[in-house]
Every structure is written in structure tokens, then in C-alpha cells.
Design a protein around this nucleic acid. Structure first.
Length: 226
DNA sequence: GCATTAACCACAG
DNA sequence: CTGTGGTTAATGC
């Protein structure tokens, strides 16, 4: 929408920080910033992967269809690239990205992005670094999630949101019960019961969507023991 | 057997 | 969309 000013952008990715000023001019000519509202789909599984999506501000869920329902793979908080693997790895998106809050996305032409990788080694290295770190944390998460029981899984993502996303013990839950269940592979009923159990035990408190972690040590314990 | 865990269904607010 | 109760199946003492 708006004409992006990549050169002046204060929210450049670590990789984009390493672009020369002429490369930034090229970027500016080949990208567009689009603003998404809560709930808007940024790109959809099964559709053509046409552009690189850079999440400049906001929060996004990355999710894909499973045999029985939707599965949330991870949350992505700004600033970060969204879906590099699905954009480079295939012509068709293997998963979807949906805004959880109002978000600003810069879509970058695939050719331009590819050109930067070919010609600017530092840029390419930053991208690889990002991909590698993501793979490490994802593998860690899969190992944890597949072996913990329900309370452990819920405790883990609550702690994750608190530590990694909001950096606070009190935050607005970005997901409803159904989405939480998509995230930790359970039913919405179990999420509902478990949250009220946690609240009953004084581990958390919930006001509408605002969640406060009261006993972080307890939550850690539950998360660890699974 | 008996307890625990968690899914599925139905229904209410 | 959320919370709850009943039921059922699987798993583990």
C-alpha cells in the first residue's frame, strides 16, 4: 500500500541491515507494505507462493491443515521473515500465516530477494542463521510437545508466550481456546478445563483474555514433569 | 479391578 | 465462543 522507505526503515531485519544503499534502493522498488487486521490471512496453504513476506510489526500464527483439523506450528513475532521455507521450498505454500493482531507485512519480490542472496554473502549468511535457529527451536518444541502430557504442554506454551513473546507475566492471550487446542494438539474442552484448573490452583489468573502468571515456578514444574 | 488421562458429545449461557 | 457434565476408551498400577 504505502510506498515503503526501506532506507529509512527502523525495523529492518538483521539481514537487511547488511544491504548496501543501492541494494536498499532496489528493495524499495520491489516491495510493498500491506497492513493486516487481526484474523486476516497473510498467505494461505495450497496457494501460489509468490513473494517473501517480512513481518515488520505484529504477531502471526503459522498453521497447516492436518488429517483432522488445523495445527498451529508456531507463533511468529515481529520482526521476522514469514515462511521462507515454503516460499523457496515449493511453488505452493505448505502452510498458512494468519495475523493474530494488526500487523504490518512487507512483501518482497522473490527475484529481488534471491538476487540479494546470490550477490551479498553477508545477507545470505544472516538468512541461513535465521533458518538454522528456527529449525533448532522447532525440533526442540516437537520433542517436548510429543512426549509431554496435556498440562505440561499447556504450561510450556504459556511460559513460552510469557518469556519469548510478551516478556511479561501478564499478557493478553492472542489465541482463543480452540486455537490453543490447535497449538498443543488437544480438544478445546480440555484447554478450557485445564485453564480453569490452573486458575483454581492459583497458578494463573484470567480476566477475559488477560492472563497473569502467578506461580511461575509451579508452571515450570508442570511443564518439566510433563 | 481401579485410577488416571483425555477425547467426544450435548447442552447452556 | 466458553464452560461443564456425562460417557467412553486406553493405559497403567
Amino acid at each position: 500500500m504505502a510506498n515503503p522507505e526501506c532506507r529509512l526503515c527502523g525495523l529492518k531485519s538483521p539481514a537487511a541491515e547488511l544491504l548496501s544503499s543501492s541494494e536498499l534502493e532496489t528493495l524499495e522498488l520491489n516491495c510493498a507494505q500491506i497492513n493486516f487486521k487481526k484474523g486476516d490471512v497473510i498467505f494461505r496453504e495450497g496457494t501460489l507462493a509468490t513473494n517473501i513476506a517480512y513481518l515488520k510489526s505484529g504477531l502471526v500464527k503459522v498453521h497447516m491443515k492436518g488429517p483432522t483439523g488445523d495445527k498451529i506450528l508456531r507463533l511468529m513475532k515481529a520482526p521476522t521473515y514469514l515462511g521462507l521455507p515454503t516460499t523457496f521450498g515449493d511453488k505452493v505454500n505448505h502452510y498458512s500465516a494468519t495475523a493474530l493482531i494488526d500487523s504490518h507485512i512487507c512483501f518482497i519480490s522473490l527475484d529481488t530477494f534471491r538476487d540479494f542472496i546470490f550477490k551479498n554473502g553477508s545477507f545470505a549468511y544472516e538468512i541461513i542463521l535465521d533458518l538454522c535457529r528456527n529449525e533448532l527451536t522447532d525440533y526442540q518444541k516437537y520433542a517436548n510437545m510429543s512426549q509431554k502430557q496435556l498440562p505440561g504442554r499447556l504450561a510450556e506454551i504459556l511460559l513460552c508466550m510469557s518469556h519469548e513473546v510478551y516478556k511479561s507475566n501478564r499478557f493478553e492471550l492472542p489465541l482463543n481456546n480452540n486455537e490453543l487446542s490447535d497449538f498443543i494438539s488437544t480438544s478445546r474442552e480440555s484447554v478450557s478445563r485445564l485453564l480453569s484448573d490452573f486458575a483454581k490452583e492459583g497458578i494463573i489468573s484470567i480476566n477475559k483474555k488477560e492472563l497473569t502468571i502467578l506461580k511461575e515456578d509451579m508452571l515450570e514444574k508442570i511443564s518439566l514433569k510433563g
